[in-house]
Nucleic acid binder design. Structure first.
Ligand SMILES: [Mg+2]
Length: 340
DNA sequence: GCGACAG
DNA sequence: ATCTTGTCGC
């Protein structure tokens, strides 16, 4: 089987990513004078209520496309909430000027809530893709044949972001090379959708590395794999579309519970969705060394089994909290991003 | 009212 | 993730 041309994969993937900003702008412009919508209403129209926090963040930005209309978006409690002008009074006056009655900084949503237009529920589509993907179980991964281990991470500058991939020897301890790609992250950060924000940058970088013949045999990614509400975190998705075996390594728990919360250094503790489902192991927590209180959360991405994953992560641990490939990718990407 | 929420 | 100075500890 001929290897996939990653430049092509990068283009295809980028084409499928929705423009959430345009969609929110469209929704906000559709709120009639004298009516309001809630942050959650807008998020649900986009296809997932978890996006409500991003919607709020976006509308609080004076530079957003619809700042002049953002006073029409309020909290689900009816409270007017914050305004980009940093003056709640200004927001209230704008609403009153449009005929909305505001009492105790609150609005009666039963009266003033707008009927929003139906738009393409982009997040619901992305969610369905994550949920319906059936990750094949790998049984042939050969740890002994690994020659290089990669670590990949993104850092953000003023306008642009930098994806860096560091290559280490199979020992997981010696850095061989660093490759970087600088571009723009268009999709916002929304919990559960990190892949759509960072994968486009990673793909451009990996395409470049493919041309140079420097792709790693296994890739550690800053983020989760199977440890995800829909079992398809960024590591799973990046592996599935590139064919590169991947492992997700996160610094915070996004989902699930640690079966045995008593963590000992170097011991792998399974993470499950809930105590009621102890049989489906989504990932593991492991304390990387004595000098930290915080574990790392490791889950398989694509093309690798849990035992091989553990063996590779173990040989990548050194004096830092993160495995060396991730540690270096974080450092190298930040070094460049801080100059942008 | 409180807690959760990858980067 | 980023915004930021000093400070405590190995
Ligand atoms: Mg990162």
């Amino acid at each position: 089987m001929a290897p996939t041309d990653l430049h092509e994969v990068a283009n295809t993937f980028a084409t499928g990513i929705p423009n959430l900003i345009d969609q929110v702008d469209q929704l906000v412009r559709a709120i009639p004078v004298g009516s309001v919508a809630t942050y959650g209403d807008l998020a649900k129209s986009l296809g997932d209520s978890v996006a409500s926090r991003w919607v709020a963040t976006y509308l609080l930005d004076p530079a957003c496309g619809v700042a002049n209309l953002s006073h029409r978006v309020v909290r689900s409690t009816g409270e007017v909430g914050l305004h980009f002008s940093e003056s709640i009074e200004a927001k209230i006056e704008l609403l009153r000027g449009e005929g909305v009655v505001v009492v105790n900084d609150s609005i009666d949503l039963k009266i003033y809530r707008a009927q929003l237009p139906t738009i393409v529920p982009s997040l619901a589509k992305l969610k369905a893709w994550q949920r319906d993907f059936e990750c094949p179980v790998e049984t042939d991964f050969a740890v002994a044949k690994i020659q290089t281990i990669g670590g990949i991470d993104v850092s953000y500058g003023k306008k642009q972001a930098v994806s860096a991939c560091c290559l280490l020897k199979s020992s997981g301890q010696t850095k061989i090379a660093t490759h970087t790609y600088t571009g723009i992250a268009n999709f916002p950060y929304i919990t559960g959708y990190l892949a759509f924000r960072e994968i486009p940058l990673h793909l451009n970088l990996l395409a470049q590395m493919q041309s140079a013949g420097t792709l790693p045999d296994v890739l550690l990614i800053d983020g989760n794999g199977r440890l995800h509400p829909r079992r398809m975190g960024i590591a799973t998705m990046l592996g599935a579309i590139t064919g590169i075996p991947t492992i997700g390594v996160a610094k915070k728990l996004i989902y699930g519970v640690i079966q045995v919360p008593k963590l000992k250094v170097g011991q792998w503790e399974p993470i499950v969705a809930s105590k009621d489902e102890p049989d489906e192991i989504l990932g593991y927590a492991i304390m990387p060394h004595t000098k930290t209180k915080h574990p790392i959360y490791v889950s398989r991405g694509f093309g690798i089994d849990d035992d091989s994953m553990k063996a590779i992560i173990e040989r990548c641990l050194a004096g830092h909290r993160s495995p060396e490939p991730i540690y270096w990718a974080d450092r190298e990407s930040r070094k460049i991003a801080s100059t942008l």
